[in-house]
Structure formats: structure tokens, C-alpha cells
Amino acid sequence: MTGPMPLDLATLRQAPKALLHDHLDGGLRPATVLELARDCNYDQLPAADAAGLARWFREAADSGSLERYLETFTHTVAVMQTPEGLHRVARECVEDLADDGVVYAEVRFAPEQHLEQDLTLDEVVEHALAGFAAGEAAAAAAGQPIVVRCLLTAMRHAARSREIAELAVRFRDRGVCGFDIAGAEAGYPPTRHLDAFEYMRVNNAHFTIHAGEAFGLPSIHEALAFCGCDRLGHGVRIVDDIEVAGDIADARLGRLAQYVRDTRVPLELCPSSNVQTGAVPSLDKHPFDLLARLRFRVTVNTDNRLMSDTSMSREMLKLHQTFGYGWTDLERFTINAMKSAFIPFPERLRIIDDIIKPGYAVLLG
């Protein structure tokens, strides 16, 4: 055909996508939650059927509070305490992402939250990585090849971050590509975990930090200036350091915003989730478009596909409908993400040059 293909959910699923911010325990299939709960005798689920459970997760996550949003993970983590549960959730995660056209993904989870059945941290990671590998194999066999790497997350309110950082380095040649801290930001600044970040830097290892979501500029400043992170998990509140009185060309960037843009710090923006947690009031007021037009390195992400009832294709469709983005814009955001991935430079180039650019060339006609 000549000319660009229509931009809708069906064609968006054909577009090659790169995903940097997706939580394993936030992307389970509702039916899987039910089945795993039955297998492990977990009887605390708030609904007894898949449709009702999916609806409960979505509605519970729509509270406008990060703390209440995080409460929904009680149920998903509860059914991910066994080798079988971890393997299945990881495998299905990869299959679902590949089915949505994702060609590269970094999926994160907190091993310390999966020890209730006496698994060791190493065993937790091994079972999850085996599930990811099985998912990659199944996706390749279905003609939907995908590369998936894992980020190991430490909970910022706990005291195991150095231990998890060591775990990430120990498994970095086996499918783990980096480290992260997550959880409620208020009261738990990233500088509480300096020893973990120092360990990552000493070992030339990558890490991102959840910062600038529920808490503002101080969180971002600490993550960059004191912790030295490679990327900002969300980072949406960097907009607090930008003044736009009239035309965007006259926007005034504060020192922190200027530094983030100048040094090309990737922003792992999650539009739907940012609205749900109250980081932004509504999608049309999301600073994604402002940041994109100011040429920050913005990327599109899902965060938690179950809680937000979303996918990469749906997130891109919402951005198209809200801000009018076309295929060229979506290609730029995808390449932004791939440039920022925690895998070796030649692998990033291969996916950009051999998969992403040819895929968008077809969509652009």
C-alpha cells in the first residue's frame, strides 16, 4: 500500500515496541491468579471469576493514591511464592508482551517478596528466568520473537537493597540486566540505599530508580546526584522544574530539568499508571507531550498491565488520541526506549536497525 496505515489498536499491535518499565507482579492474567490461588490454597481474593477479578484490580488501582495502588499487589504476590507460580507468571508475561508486538522488554520484580515458601533469593530468580526463557521460546515458535531481560527490584521501605544488588550482579550474565528500587517514595528517599547503588557502580552494572512519581523534585535530584542512576523510573514530576508561560519555545527549564534533558536521562513514563496513582490529574494533563516537544528522552511504558488494564498498544493509542501522535512520533519514542535499554550497544543497534525501523517503515507506507 502507499501512504501510512491507519493508526488504530489493530495496527498498533503490529508495530514493534520496546518496553523498559513493566512489573512482573503487576501483569498477571486474571484467570492465572485464580488458578494459582486455588493451587496454593490462597482464599483472600476479592472476586471468584476472571472478569470480576480484572474489574476489581482496575477499580482498586483507580484510587489516585500510590499507597492504595500498591495494596493491590498483595494478591498477585501471594500466588507467586512457588517455583511453578513464578515460572508460569514469567512465561505468560513474555507470551502476552510478544502477542502485543513488543520486541524488547525489561521486566522487573522484587525477589525478596517471594520467600514465603522457603525459596532462596537465588532460587526465586532462577525460576523466574526459566519462565522468561520458556516464554521467549514459545513466542519465537509462534513467529513473534522477543528479547526479555529482568531487572531485580529492592523494596525501598526494607533493608535488603545491598543484598538484591549483589543478586543482580550475580545473575547479570544469565538474564538479569539491572537493578531498581521501588515502593512508596514519601519517607523512603533513594539515599537510604546508597551502599546498593555504590555496589552497582563499582561493578559497572546498570540501575534505574523509581523517582519523581508520588514525590517531587527532591526524589529525582537524589536519584541522579547522589545515587547516580542511569534512568528515572517514571520521573514525571520533572515537569515541576519547567515553566511555560506562553509558547513552548519560551519554556524555562530549571537546573535539574536542564540537566536531565542535556544528559539524555531516559524517563520511563507510564501514562495510565501515572493518572491512577495521582502523579498527574488526567491523561490530557500528562506532561508527556510537553516533555516530548522539549526533546527530553521520553519512553512509553505499561507499569502494571493488570492494574491499569492496559498494554503497550493501548498506551500508544491513548497517546495518539490525546496528543495526536502519528507513526513517526511513536517510532521515535520506541527508539528512545531501545537506545536506553540495559543490554550491550551492538544488541540495541541490531534491534533498532533490523526490527524497529523496518517495522515502522511498513506502517508509514
Score class of each variant (00 low, 15 high):
107 V>S: 02
124 V>A: 01
359 G>Q: 08
127 H>Q: 08
168 A>E: 07
79 V>H: 03
200 M>P: 07
174 R>M: 13
55 R>Y: 09
204 N>T: 11
140 A>T: 12
204 N>R: 12
163 E>S: 11
351 I>K: 09
327 W>T: 04
323 F>I: 10
53 L>V: 05
290 L>N: 04
330 L>W: 10
141 A>P: 02
69 Y>L: 06
226 F>H: 14
122 D>T: 12
207 F>S: 00
154 A>T: 03
131 G>F: 00
4 P>E: 09
228 G>R: 10
292 A>G: 08
229 C>R: 04
344 P>R: 09
42 Y>S: 03
186 A>H: 09
14 Q>M: 13
82 T>G: 11
204 N>H: 13
276 Q>N: 09
119 L>K: 01
355 I>G: 01
171 F>G: 02
334 T>A: 13
341 A>R: 00
238 I>W: 01
230 D>P: 14
142 A>E: 08
171 F>A: 06
334 T>P: 10
312 M>E: 07
94 V>A: 05
190 P>C: 07
231 R>N: 13
136 E>P: 14
177 C>K: 00
97 L>F: 12
272 S>N: 08
137 A>T: 10
161 S>I: 06
7 L>E: 15
178 G>R: 00
327 W>H: 11
50 A>K: 02
32 T>I: 04
282 S>F: 04
325 Y>M: 14
64 G>W: 15
331 E>G: 05
305 R>V: 06
40 C>G: 05
19 L>S: 04
291 L>P: 03
116 E>R: 11
136 E>I: 06
170 R>H: 15
152 L>H: 08
326 G>E: 15
135 G>L: 04
70 L>S: 07
112 E>M: 05
229 C>F: 00
31 A>H: 06
